[in-house]
Write a protein that binds this DNA or RNA. Structure first.
Length: 718
RNA sequence: GGCGCGAUAGCUCAGCUGGUUAGAGCGUAUGAUUCAUAAUCAUAAGGUCGGGAGUUCAAGUCUCCCUCGCGCUACCA
């Protein structure tokens, strides 16, 4: 058992709001885990914060005509408030634009440099001569070579999702000045990841580093280990840790060639966990270092699966390269949450935004949390539906849990004026866990204790769905306890039985108030209020509860006065669900309409006409008519077809990237236009002697360009 | 194409190192009950565990092949 815990949740990127996928992926599991540890009396710090650097933010700022600072301020505030409203309880929600973070990241960089972890490399990069600066990938726009979207970014095309590098863009232009960038040499610092490959492989697969057992790899999720090994097997490459940018953490100025250089966001973001911890410690006047540098600290990163490689390989490599830091004992990454049968998508507005949820369904924070946990993508992608949300809220939260709490309280008020009845502990009754079993108060408290322990073990293994299920089992057993013993019937003739049953029921409710806290903090608070118990402070209350139960002691003492019964949850009516589904549908329709139809958008999707050329330039192209004689799929290539084309005077082998649009057998006999004097090029081991000309639309769909039917092969096109 | 992770009841998902009639919640059906928000409790029906082959006394669980989904990656002049 470790002495203290440091729990991190992925830093949200401050250029957009949070949706339910973020919640289910990282923040909710982290929050549950942390609240549980606190309730068990553990020393735990839970850090998070906004990731406020990177080119995506400056690009957005430019688009909206505001400063990057305005963007990050807006979303930092928004995200922070959303977390607070939905009950994600960080010890600190920091931000990477804070001076403390800049200083911390720079110190880290210096130390890595000092330790010889960097390799300084010069490479050619696009440079904007008008704006006088190097251009980060995101600062370059050009036509996507895959789908012809004219506004693809240098790192990615948002239309077709292809990963790109700036040099692949056709007609690149700078977003700063609009001018065409030129290539110029620039210097960057590359982390020698290749040198870390061996120990990382051992650490991931055995849990050992430097001969010391740090964790049990069997405790890590399959998909996490699998993803890491997939990367390790492909071989790690040195990775640039700096960028040419004007927004971010400066490379320390005393370092030569540092002018205009910023730390790569992926380097400075995880260091954000460290600076957040420092700030937290500073605010409390305690020492931050044990949390990051002591072997008896358990460091746990909660993330979504898109962050696995960074948190399991690159950040650990950085921590180790620094030398003083501990490595994470687990990275319980979740998979993705889907919504109503489709992937969540910010650009398509296919999402449930958390800030909208709390505004539109006020007071139902726990209902969302409950459904997120119930459908948490722990082992594989999972699915959220509004119908499912309604059904489980009404059946499980309202019917089972709220119903149980309410009926115990109402019965106590009716029979004992709202005071916990004193009982004869030798009195026997039917167990709520088994109608045929006669039990006693002590035995049932012990059973409750065992259940809660079982729940705790599941949380410790990051099985939050299962843990929640166990809690609901307790509520069900409470309902059954009442059902089997029917205290409403026998109040007159067997008051002792009624007392012991209601007293036990109240103990269940009291135990649940603490145990539910990690999952449903708002409901837990409400139950405390109903029971007239002190509000939870997330400070060892569950541990105390467990200890009492283990001794056979009740949590609520006889004669303790309760407050009036109130409903914990209310049913979700059909209209609310219908409205939410309607909202998604309109988002979908808006997408379908705007994508091709919106006039301004459509205008933008035409690629600009290229720079004019002379006739002589055109005349150099030798374009001929031809006919496809043979076509076959090339092995190990998804997009390539090998074609044999008859040009009349000869036959050529041409490799063409059209396999995803045409079946080989369907194009045999097609007449085509061929660029005949293109220099041969070998692709997948086959030499391509020319190029088939294709028409391509904005979505990347291809169409053959042909002469009239029956036109002879080999003639020129001009 | 390569690699990783998935594919289990109508729905959403568990099934660790292979072992008796494959589990849960919801939904459905029947019955009981009325303290409680038509809430609760009991019982039942529902699965040839994506398809095929193999290893084994024994496979949802291991091996191989195939199909489909998600992710990463290569190929597009």
């Amino acid at each position: 058992m470790k002495k203290r815990y440091l729990v991190t949740a992925a830093l949200p990127y401050a250029n957009g709001p949070l949706h339910i996928g973020h919640l289910a992926g990282a923040y909710l599991p982290a929050d549950i885990y942390v609240r549980y540890l606190r309730l068990m009396g553990k020393d735990v710090v839970f850090v998070c914060g906004s990731d406020e650097h990177g080119a995506a933010i400056t690009v957005r700022a430019r688009k909206e005509g505001v400063t990057p600072r305005e963007i990050v301020d807006k979303y930092h505030t928004m995200i922070r408030d959303t977390f607070q409203k939905i009950g994600i309880d960080f010890d600190i929600y920091h931000r990477t634009s804070e001076p403390l973070h800049h200083a911390t990241s720079q110190d880290f960089f210096r130390k890595l440099l000092e330790n010889g972890q960097f390799e300084e490399k010069e490479s050619d990069q696009y440079y904007d001569e008008t704006a006088n600066q190097f251009l980060a990938d995101r600062y370059i726009i050009g036509t996507c070579p895959v789908c012809s979207n004219p506004d693809a970014y240098g790192d990615q095309c948002e239309k077709c999702g292809s990963t790109l590098s700036p040099t692949q863009l056709i007609n690149p232009r700078s977003t700063l000045s609009g001018s065409a960038p030129v290539m110029k040499p620039t210097t960057h610092w590359y982390l020698k990841l290749d040198e870390h490959e061996n120990w990382l492989r051992e650490w991931i697969n055995t849990g050992r580093a430097d001969g010391i057992q740090l964790h049990d790899p069997a405790e890590w999720k399959n998909h996490v280990v699998g993803q890491c090994n997939s990367w390790l097997d492909q071989g790690l490459q040195p990775r640039a840790m700096t960028r040419d940018l004007d927004w971010g953490v400066d490379v320390p100025h005393e370092i030569p060639h540092s002018a205009g250089k910023k730390l790569y966001v992926w380097l400075d973001a995880p260091i954000g966990y460290i600076s957040a911890t420092k700030q937290w410690a500073l605010d409390r006047g305690v020492d931050w270092e044990p949390y990051w540098k002591s072997d008896d600290t358990a460091l746990i990163h909660f993330i979504g699966k898109d962050n696995i490689v960074f948190h399991c390989l690159i950040f650990p490599a950085i921590l180790k390269a620094h030398g003083d830091f501990i490595l994470p004992v687990n990275v319980p990454a979740n998979q993705f949450l889907n919504l109503e049968g489709n992937k969540l998508s910010t650009s398509r507005n296919w999402a449930v935004w958390v800030h909208e949820y709390v505004a539109e369904l006020p007071g139902r924070e726990d209902e969302l949390r409950y459904n997120m946990i119930k459908n948490m993508p722990e082992q594989r992608d999972s699915e959220f539906t509004w119908k499912g949300f309604q059904e489980s809220t009404n059946a499980e939260l309202v019917g089972n849990l709220a119903g149980f709490v309410h009926r115990v309280l109402v019965l106590t008020h009716k029979n004992y004026t709202g005071v916990v009845p004193a009982i004869d502990i030798s009195r026997e009754f039917k167990s709520g866990w088994d109608a045929d079993q006669v039990s006693t108060f002590d035995q049932e408290l012990l059973r409750l204790h065992l259940k809660l322990e079982e729940m705790g073990r599941e949380i410790e293994h990051f099985n939050f769905r299962e843990a929640l299920r166990i809690l609901m089992e307790i509520s069900s057993a409470g309902n059954a306890l009442l059902q089997f013993n029917e205290p409403w019937k026998i109040a007159g003739d067997d008051p002792e039985l009624v007392k012991v049953v209601l007293n036990l029921g109240l103990q269940y409710v009291a135990a649940l108030s603490a145990a539910l806290r990690p999952f449903l903090p708002f409901a837990a608070d409400r139950i405390r209020g109903l029971l007239n118990l002190p509000a939870l402070t997330d400070d060892r209350e569950l541990l105390d509860t467990l200890n009492e139960l283990a001794e056979g002691n009740p949590i609520l003492q006889p004669n303790h006065a309760l407050n009036a019964a109130e409903h914990l949850f209310t049913r979700v009516p059909d209209e609310v669900i219908a409205a939410q589904i309607q909202k998604l549908k309109s988002a979908e329709q808006a997408n379908q309409q705007t994508a091709p139809a919106e006039p301004t958008e459509e205008k933008m999707t035409y690629a600009p006409v290229k720079e004019s050329i002379e006739f002589d330039d055109f005349a150099q192209l030798d374009i001929r008519t031809g006919t496809i004689l043979e076509a076959s799929k090339i092995e190990k290539a998804d997009k390539l077809l090998k074609l044999t084309v008859d040009l009349g005077f000869e036959q050529r082998t041409i490799v063409s990237g059209i396999a995803q649009h045409f079946l080989p057998e369907a194009i045999i006999g097609r007449q085509v236009i061929v660029l005949a004097n293109l220099a041969p090029r070998t692709m997948r081991g086959i030499e391509s002697q020319g190029m088939i000309l294709m028409a391509e639309d904005a979505e990347g769909k291809l169409s053959f360009v042909s002469p009239e039917a029956g036109w002879p092969n080999g003639w020129g096109v001009k």
